[in-house]
Design a protein around this nucleic acid. Sequence first.
DNA 1: TCTGGGGTCCTAGGACCC
DNA 2: TCTGGGGTCCTAGGACCC
Length: 365
Amino acid sequence: MSDAPTSWVLHVDLDEFIAAVEVLRRPELRGRPVIVGGRGDPAERAVVATASYEAREFGAASGMPLRIAARRVPDAVILPVDAPAYTEASEYVMQALRGLSREGERGIVEVLGWDEAFLGVQTKDPEALARHVQAVILSATALHSSVGIGDTKVRAKIATGFGKPGGIFRLTRDNWIEVMGERPTVALWGVGSKISRRLAGLGIETVSQLAAADRDVLVAEFGPRMGRWYAELGRGHSSAIVDDTPWIPRGHSRETTYQSNLTTPAEVEAAVRELAGQVFEDTVAEGRPVFRVTLKVRYAPFFTQTKARKLPAPTRERAEVVAAAIALSDRLDPGREIRLLGVRAEMVMPEEGDPAERTPIRGRL
DNA sequence: TCTGGGGTCCTAGGACCC
DNA sequence: TCTGGGGTCCTAGGACCC
């Protein structure tokens, strides 16, 4: 065996991040079942963003209607979502990760969201480095984390789940089939309930079966890109390149589920103006013109549609963005009650119009 | 149980053009 | 006669993730 450091992907995931941030600033909540969601009112239309481990024991889970979670956890402390607080805590953690380096060990940080990042590292002892990462985060923020170690991004990401909470797990080509082979395909990152059901329709239930599946069959079912991607996923194959170049958002959106359905055209128009104005401000902050506007509608009880229009030319004018959204809203069914409205604006990419300079679209790992 | 908000990428199908 | 094939652009919808 060589003594030289080798390349690893570490996936760092903060444990019960949102609940943990709330407990940090309200120490009296430690040990209590904490549920964060919506405006903190279980009577409203909202879902659980994060439940503390204590609340999960009673059956609360992310994505569950707040009302149900509150019923299941009678003693729960229910708090509103405070996005700016989580953004701040997240940036603090990511800065700590970027500053992390030891002798001969230098990391690149690719942020995946508030509570996750990939680290590209070179080390002889990835477990020791993972423990160091956890210690650095803990001393910087008092937050606990789990770390997955992999030879690809997919394996590192999936490994983290086996480390939770607070642990470390290594998943590589050597133990992929042993660890994952008998698990259902839905255990894979990127396979959800719909795709796993379609795979089952092809006789593919487990990760091993997906790994052994005929690529052409997958391509016929899912199309050229997704078919090939699922074939790779079954084997744990993916990129191992951690990329820290700043992400350029393709667009911004704002949507609202109304506490009571909208019924009149005047209500709808006011709501669309409000959302379009907010989205416009988001694009202004980005400093890039808008080229497409999409209106999303969810009719009661729960039927969702989108209407989109490419603008005649990219614009930086508020009035044009709002007018486009209003024009789309003219196509809504006036006879149906509306539960949700959303407006999305897509922005011109900075280098667009200069094809030679175009950066590749962020690939599927 | 009655289902948030903010994102990304892929696919299908129709229109249009040569 | 009534029929091609391919390419691009656009919209709608689907699926997934945190």
